[in-house]
Design a protein around this nucleic acid. Structure first.
Lengths: 334, 334
DNA sequence: CTGTTAGCGCGTTCAC
DNA sequence: GTGAACGCGCTAACAG
């Protein structure tokens, strides 16, 4: 238990026989001769000095903290959050993580608290990207959103997903297999309508002669199981389930098992995100994979760099074993 | 886009016609008449004032932040970290999350930075609980460790797991089934020996006439698959794998599949932590479940309360389908 | 008790 | 290279 009373800049200035200012500049290599800088630095780590990040933050107005805000309930997003956190650390930024479940209300609250928290920026995995409240975040807090653009915050960096490609590929795949009725299990709440992926699914489905029924599901396996069950508990249920997240797909597996439906012979299931476990369930889950590290790097770069970039990532279709043609006779009625 | 240049204490002092000091006291309800306090508070949120956490931290030495430090690579810990973060928020504590992968070196670095960050406390899911470096964290930073006690930090709160029960039950279960040679896949590194669970496994194994071979594995599915493969790639490999974490168990499934070993007929697999997916893999994973919410509450309570409590949780054995008696003839040699 | 004045904490930055 | 002011809230010491 070190009881060392923290060295301050003054301490090492004294030791070096310099002024605080000179020492400060030297430490940061901004001014002073090579020699002085070297001497000061040597002294600093000899005495075990390290800048007090709080004092520095107070002095120059940036805290070096960024918030990671959003819906962090499914495995994929949790993993992403941890990766983000790590990438930020490598950029000398501390991250505070705030899960908002999938509640726009919580999202708004957290956002409101941001200003007070003095974060320099935020990386969002937005619950409701079309909400007005994004506009209320002070303009000097940089935002990068992952997944959807923030309509109320056009200046934010965006790491977008090529949903058109993903959803199009998925529906085409199902249409090609002969499905006509598809259930879409989306992670948002009914109260946050208009998320691109869902609109897209309806439109693209229409153009392929596919009837797409949309349902909303929590991103937890058990929650999704319940949602999937409801979708399947009608007399003439969809013959395929397209789940916007692997966690949801796993829930769908569970629901099918409970209902005695075999995957993929009775019903096809399509996931999204390629969780580590997708190849491990039976049958292996057909899903879409991302280059997560590239996504994380893009987000952090967009936050740290000077251009709030807009980049788009295209998911890779990973066909495995969870899809097949629909059963020949009308789907069993529960 | 509010462009408000952050109100300061001075602003609201001016507005109230008071001194900064009076205002500061009033806001915190420490001094001043009821009337003044009410007036000042009203003014404060009318003007949208909120204390600058940085200035406050600099002034009184505490930031109201707590760090969540540790190995956050497996799903279970990631989920726990997010839950902790949420529970802390409810206690008006912001949390910063630092994943240290499973590197003691990184753990030490993060710990060292803690003091500078002015965190009030830390919740640790320690990589190396027996390391000396825990002792170097300033005594005024409260620590609560989850999973293992910190030998160098006897004053820390502890949320312990009843490993004796868990490991004992697991090994007994395997012994009862007739296994004699068990592989233990533990998430630590070879460089951090002496983790209770592993020592226990050897000792308990001995007393049951079980030969326990310990191997170390990353907590990712793919990493664990590799580790499991090595363990199984010897001529006379264990007939059961006890994995200290479901992520590792899933990796073991993957390895078995690749090696053409059937679970549970060729090899039994036992997990730990009861991930949401444990009942979804085939065969369903036999594992141990926790009351995560209780664990989180205990940790947060121990950090926030005044008694650095020591509590212990006992996992629940969840027998499903991944264990069976060993094959009658000697195990196939790869 | 109410309110005030005058630092303090610690690193940064502007003038000279 | 230097002194001094600054950022913003907290707190000891003191006056009414």
């Amino acid at each position: 238990m070190t009881d060392s009373p923290r060295k301050t800049l003054q301490d090492i200035a004294d030791a070096a026989g310099l002024s605080k200012a000179a020492t400060s500049y030297a430490l940061r290599g901004i001014r002073g001769s090579e020699k002085t800088q070297a001497k000061v630095r040597a002294l600093a780590d000899e005495l075990g000095y390290s800048v007090d990040p709080i004092a520095r933050a107070l002095a120059n107005g940036r805290s070096g903290n960024v918030a990671i805000v959003g819906s962090l309930r499914d495995m994929w997003r949790q993993g992403l959050a941890v990766m983000l956190s790590e990438a930020l650390r490598e950029n000398e930024l501390a991250s505070i993580i705030a899960d908002v479940d999938s509640s726009p209300k919580r999202e708004q609250e957290v956002l409101q608290a941001l200003a007070g928290q003095r974060v320099d920026g935020a990386i969002a995995l937005p619950v409701d990207p079309s909400a007005e409240y994004w506009g209320t975040v002070p303009a000097d807090i940089r935002i990068v959103s992952i997944g959807d653009a923030l309509s109320a915050r056009p200046d934010a960096g965006c790491v977008l997903f090529d949903n058109e490609y993903g959803v199009g590929t998925a529906l085409q795949h199902l249409a090609d297999l002969g499905h006509r009725s598809v259930g879409l299990l989306a992670p948002s709440l009914p109260t946050t309508p208009g998320r691109p992926a869902e609109l897209l699914a309806r439109n693209l489905g229409d153009s392929m002669g596919l009837s797409v029924r949309v349902a909303y599901s929590p991103s937890t396996v058990t929650g999704a199981a319940r949602a999937a069950r409801e979708l399947l508990a009608v007399t003439s249920h969809p013959t395929a389930l397209f789940c916007l997240g692997d966690s949801i797909a796993f829930g769908a597996y569970s629901a099918c098992r409970a209902l005695g439906l075999a995957v993929p012979t009775d019903i096809s299931i399509l996931g999204f995100d390629d969780s580590e476990l997708a190849p491990l369930v039976t049958p292996e889950l057909t899903t879409f994979g991302w280059d997560e590290q590239a996504i994380v790097d893009a987000a952090v770069h967009s936050l740290a760099g000077d251009d709030p970039a807009r980049v788009m990532f295209r998911p890779e279709f990973l066909q495995r074993g969870s899809t097949a043609p629909p059963p020949a006779d009308p789907a069993p009625s529960r």
